[in-house]
Design a protein around this nucleic acid. Structure first.
Length: 318
DNA sequence: AACAGATACAACCGCACGGGT
DNA sequence: AACCCGTGCGGTTGTATCTGT
């Protein structure tokens, strides 16, 4: 498996660098759609891209992935980033894991380009008493957060959900091995519309698939809007699998990026079957390992504490 | 209109880590 | 145990776009 391919070393093609062209994007997207599995170096080669696997991976994760939320950060997302950064520091991947549809790179850029400066300006006007290296006032133990006044409560909108059936989740989640999404595990605290079906959205989905748009327009937890800000009806388990939705998402995503229009996320079955884990890089169980690391650092408990703070992610079911 | 500086975003680089050989 | 390879992460750099003069 790991033996080097002699052909690979001989005909060293000069790999492209820099910005991706639309053609390259399409090649990668189509390849991921049709056979998006295997190691990234193989993907780069098989897709006919003169890129290194690393570059392809980055492009996919940061730009082409169909579940990405585009556009500006909402005030709620800003607050969340600020707060998570106060706890986690520059662990962008862990912060991103709690902001569905956002990538670590995106959050990192946003922090460095916008939030950092904004908070710096704030602290110069109102000096921080703790004098720490961090830029924003905080009191993790006490639960003081720089939340905006106008959204102390996030509203949990489910108007688009046509079926209250439970969303399908991977076995490792349903087996309760751990809670990958302690902040947003609705199953812990919330009944969806009072219906018997529970909405359990683990990290693997919120980051890579169906759980998109926890912080949608106006910072609302919008389970009914997934991926492209298009209206979306969550199908019942009997009718549609996650694979169906994700593959459809990829199909739609190609069009979406071409037309830059909102795309309806439907469950049409005109696609090839793709493993969810393969599609979103979940086969490496990374989403679990992060939390284990956090546990070692004693951060998991901190993150758990967050959910008990009055102003933080105070979802309400309408 | 042209230019410079600021800003936002995309991508690269180096390193660390884990798993396989 | 040592090495190789793939992957993920965070820091940094590069580039496109915006804004002010």
């Amino acid at each position: 498996m790991r033996k080097p391919d002699p052909n690979m070393t001989k005909d060293k093609i000069k790999l492209r660098k820099g910005l991706w062209s639309p053609e390259e994007d399409e090649k990668l997207m189509k390849y991921m759609l049709t056979s998006g599995q295997g190691c990234w170096s193989d993907i780069a080669k098989n897709a006919g891209l003169q890129r290194c696997g690393k570059s392809c991976r980055l492009r996919w994760i940061n730009y082409l992935r169909p579940d990405l939320k585009r556009g500006a950060f909402s005030p709620q997302e800003e607050d969340l980033i600020i707060h998570l950064h106060s706890i986690l520091g520059n662990r962008w991947s862990q912060i991103a894991a709690r902001l569905p549809g956002r990538t670590d790179n995106e959050i990192k850029n946003f922090w460095n380009s916008t939030l950092k400066k904004r908070l710096k300006n704030n602290t110069t006007t109102s000096s921080s008493p703790n004098g720490s290296d961090s830029l924003e006032p905080r009191d993790v133990e006490g639960g003081i957060f720089p939340l905006h006044e106008h959204h102390h409560t996030m509203t949990f909108c489910l108007d688009s959900i046509s079926s209250p059936s439970a969303i399908s989740v991977p076995p490792m989640v349903t087996n309760n091995q751990f809670d990958p999404f302690p902040l947003l595990n609705i199953n812990n605290r919330y009944d969806v519309m009072g219906a018997p079906g529970l909405l359990d959205v683990p990290t693997c989905l919120t980051q890579g698939g169906l759980g998109e748009a926890f912080y949608g327009d106006c910072g609302i937890l919008e389970t009914g809007k997934i991926g492209f800000e298009g209206d979306f009806s969550i199908p019942s388990l009997e009718s549609t699998s996650i694979e169906d939705n994700n593959a459809a998402a990829i199909n739609n995503s190609i069009d979406h990026r071409k037309s830059n229009n909102n795309t309806c996320f439907n469950s049409s079955s005109d696609h090839q079957s793709i493993k969810v884990g393969d599609m979103f890089g979940l086969e490496n169980h990374h989403w679990g390992g992060e939390n284990l690391k956090m546990g070692e650092w004693g951060l998991e408990g901190l993150m758990d504490n967050i959910s008990s703070f009055p102003n933080f992610l105070d979802f309400q079911v309408e």
